[in-house]
Design a protein around this nucleic acid. Structure first.
Lengths: 220, 220, 220, 220
DNA sequence: CATGAATGAGCCTTCATTCAT
DNA sequence: CATGAATGAAGGCTCATTCAT
C-alpha cells in the first residue's frame, strides 16, 4: 500500500547557487575591467550576495578570479576546439582553416554584450598568478595542437623553433583582433562580431597563412 | 628578387631636470607594472624627487603617464621610423621588410633591462585616457604608412577594408611578440631581444607576409 | 499684562553602536572647529572607531556632517520647540516669550562643555551642502511658526515682507549671542549659559521686542 | 642753456603695487570663501603675482589675511563712522538712527559684486588670530560709541551689563542681515542691497529699537 | 553557512611654505 | 626683489579582508 512520506526539504541550494552567481557576475566584470580595476563589492552586488561571500567561497579575490578563468578556459575548449575527430583525416589545410576559425571565435564571439574570453587574452598581456595555471593546464596543450597542424601543413621536417615561428605567425593574426581591439576600433578597423564576419576573416587569415607557410617550406 | 639587409640601432640617455628625471623614472615602472599598479611614491623615490613634484610638473599621475607615453611615442617614431626617404624609391618588398623590422624593434628592443615601448602596446589592450591621444596623434599616421606600403606590395587596386585586412595580418605578427610575451615565455617560445634575433624574426615575418600578400593579390 | 515664567530643561545621553558613537564624537568637533578644520581621524579616534567606519556608515565626511546636522536639528526641535499645544490658547505675548526663550536655549545651552547647536548656527553664516537640507526640512517650518507668533502679537494684518522684518528683529537678538560669541566674549559681554541667565536674557529680549512690535503696529 | 638730462627710471614701483594687488585680490576671496578655503595660489593668480610673493610681503597667508582685515576695518570706520561731529549735539534718537544705518551699510553694502566687510563679520563667528587684533584695535572702540549712544537714548543711569544688553539688541539686528545671509536668502527674506533698501531697513530697526529701549527705561 | 559591521593599510592629491636662481 | 621649482606634511577616501553575530 502506498504510504505518504515526507519529502526532505531540498533547501535553496544557496551555497552552490551563490558560488555560481558570483562566478557569473564576476566574469564580465573581470573581462571588461581587468583584475585590479574590478571591485569585489561590485561583483557581490551584481550577484546579490554579500561581499564576504567571495572570501568564503573562493578564499580571496584572486581565488574567484582563477575560478572564473578556469571556467572560461574550459568553455573555450569545449565550445571552440582547435581540433576535432571528424577532421582527423582531413587535409592539413582544412584543419588549419578550422583551427583559425575557432581561435578567432574564442576571441571575438560576444555573448550578451560581453566578450567572455577577453579576460584570458588579457592575461597573456598582463599576467597575474593565474597565467601559470592557464598555460600549464590549457594553453600548452592547445599550442601543441597548433604546432601539429602547422607542421602537417608545412609538410616537411622542422625543428621546434621553426614550428614556433610559423605557429605564432598564424596565432598572432587571430589574437590580434581580440587583443588590440581598442586600438583597432579607434583606427576605423571593423572588428568582426557575427559568425559570418568571423568566418570571412578566418578565410583571409587561412589563405594568407597557407601561402606564408608555403613560402617558408623552401629553406631560405 | 628582394634580399634582406640589416640596419644599425640607436641609443638614448636620460636624466637632467626633475621633470626629465620623473619621466625617466616613470617609464620603466609604467611599462612593467601598468598605470594602476605603479605607485607615485615609487616614481618619486626613484627620481629622487618629492611626490608633490609629480603633481607640480604634470598635474596628476595621469598627466605624468601621458607625458611618458608621448615621449615614448615620439622616440618610437624617431628611432624606428616605418618609412624613410632613403627607401622611397626602393622596391615595395624592401620597404615592407624595413617596416616590419622597425615595428619589431619598437616592441622588442630593450634598454637597460626595460622594454620602453611596452607601455604603448599595453595601451592597445587596456586603454586609458591616453590612447585616444596616441591614436590620433601617432598611430593613425603610422597606420597610414603601413597601408601605403602594403598596398604597394599588393600592387593592385584594393578598397580600404581589404587593405586593413592585409595590413593587420602583417602588424599582428610584429605586435604579437611584444604583447603576448608573458604567455610566449611560458610556452617556451624564445623572445628575440638582440638586434640579430630581431632581424631574423623580421626576415621570417617579411617572407611569410610577402607570400601571404601575393596569395591575396589574386581575387578569391 | 503679560508676566514671565520659567520652564524646565531636558538632557540627553549618547553612545551605543559605532554609528552613534561617530555622531556623538563628531558633534562637538564639528561644532567647535567647523567642517573643514575637523579631521576625520580625530573623530574616529574619539569614537574609538576606525577611520574607514566613517565612510562605511556615512559615505563620506560630508555624509557624517549632515547626519550630525540632522541629529542636532531634530534634537533642537524636540527639546526646544518654538510652539507647544499647551500654549496654543495663551496670549500671543506669552507665546512670544516662550519662543524667544527656547530659541535662546537652542543656541546657548551647553552640554558637557560643548554647545551642540553651534554648528547649525555656523551653517547660517558659512553654508555647506547641508544648509539647503536644513532650511527646507527644518528652518522654514520654524520660521513659519515665528512669523505666526509675531503676527499674532502684531495683531493686525501685515504682508509677508513686514512680517519678515519684525520676525528677524526678534530672531536676530536670539541668534546673536550664539553667533557672535567670540566677539562678545572679547568685548566683555557675558554670555548667558545657565538656565537662569538664559531666562533673564529671554525676559529682556521679549520685553524689548514686545515694545518694538507695538511701535511697528502703528503705520509709520 | 637748456641741457638734456637723463631722467631716472622711475621703476615699476612693483614692490608696492604687487603688495597692493595682493590685498586687492585677496579681499573678495577671503570675504566670500573664508580664510581656510581661500587658496594662496588663487590669490596670487588673481593678482598676477607669484605665489611666493605672499610670503615675501606678508610673511604668511595669515599675515596677508590680517593686512586685508586691517584695511577693511580701516575703510569701514572711515566710510561708515558710527558717530560724527556733525551730530554730536543732535538728539540721541537721531544719533541712534545714524549709527544703525551705518552699521547696516558696513555689513550690507556691495562693491563690484563683493561684500567687502563680510570677512570681518565672519571673524565674529569663526575667529582666527586676527579677531583679537580687530577687537582690541577697532571693535572695542566702536562698541563704546554704541553704548554711549544707546545710553543717551536710554536717558537714565544704567550699569554696564544693562547697557550691553540694550546695545546688543540693537547691534544684533544690524549684523543679522550680514551674518545670516545664506539662511535668509533661502528663507525668502530679501536682503537689502541698495542704499534705499538699506535706509528703509535702518528706519525699521531704529523705530523698533527706540521703542524697545523705551520699554527697558522703566525698571522691570 | 551568511551577513552587516569593522579593520588597517595605502594611495593620490592638495597646500602653504621655502629654496636657489 | 621676484620667480619657478621643490618640499613635506597631512588628509580623505578606497578596497580587500576579517570578525562577530
Amino acid at each position: 500500500m502506498y504510504r505518504i512520506r515526507p519529502i526532505a526539504a531540498v533547501g535553496t541550494d544557496s551555497s552552490a547557487s551563490t558560488r555560481a552567481a558570483l562566478i557569473a557576475a564576476a566574469t564580465p566584470l573581470f573581462a571588461s575591467d581587468g583584475y585590479e580595476a574590478t571591485r569585489t563589492r561590485d561583483i557581490a552586488d551584481k550577484a546579490k550576495a554579500n561581499v564576504a561571500a567571495i572570501n568564503y567561497h573562493f578564499g580571496s579575490k584572486m581565488g574567484l578570479y582563477q575560478a572564473v578563468m578556469k571556467a572560461q578556459a574550459d568553455r573555450m575548449i569545449e565550445e571552440f576546439p582547435l581540433a576535432t575527430d571528424a577532421l582527423s583525416s582531413a587535409a592539413p589545410e582544412e584543419r588549419l582553416h578550422w583551427l583559425v576559425r575557432n581561435l578567432l571565435r574564442r576571441v571575438l564571439v560576444t555573448q550578451g554584450g560581453n566578450q567572455p574570453t577577453r579576460m584570458c587574452v588579457r592575461e597573456f598581456v598582463e599576467p597575474t598568478e593565474a597565467l601559470d595555471y592557464m598555460v600549464k593546464e590549457i594553453v600548452s596543450h592547445q599550442f601543441a595542437i597548433m604546432k601539429q597542424v602547422v607542421g602537417d601543413v608545412l609538410g616537411r621536417k622542422a625543428d621546434d623553433d621553426e614550428l614556433n615561428l610559423v605557429a605564432e605567425s598564424v596565432i598572432s593574426q587571430c589574437f590580434h583582433y581580440g587583443m588590440a581591439e581598442p586600438m583597432l576600433t579607434r583606427l576605423g578597423v571593423k572588428i568582426p562580431r557575427t559568425d559570418e564576419e568571423i568566418d570571412a576573416l578566418a578565410v583571409h587569415i587561412t589563405r594568407f597563412s597557407l601561402a606564408g607557410i608555403a613560402a617558408v617550406r623552401v629553406p631560405a
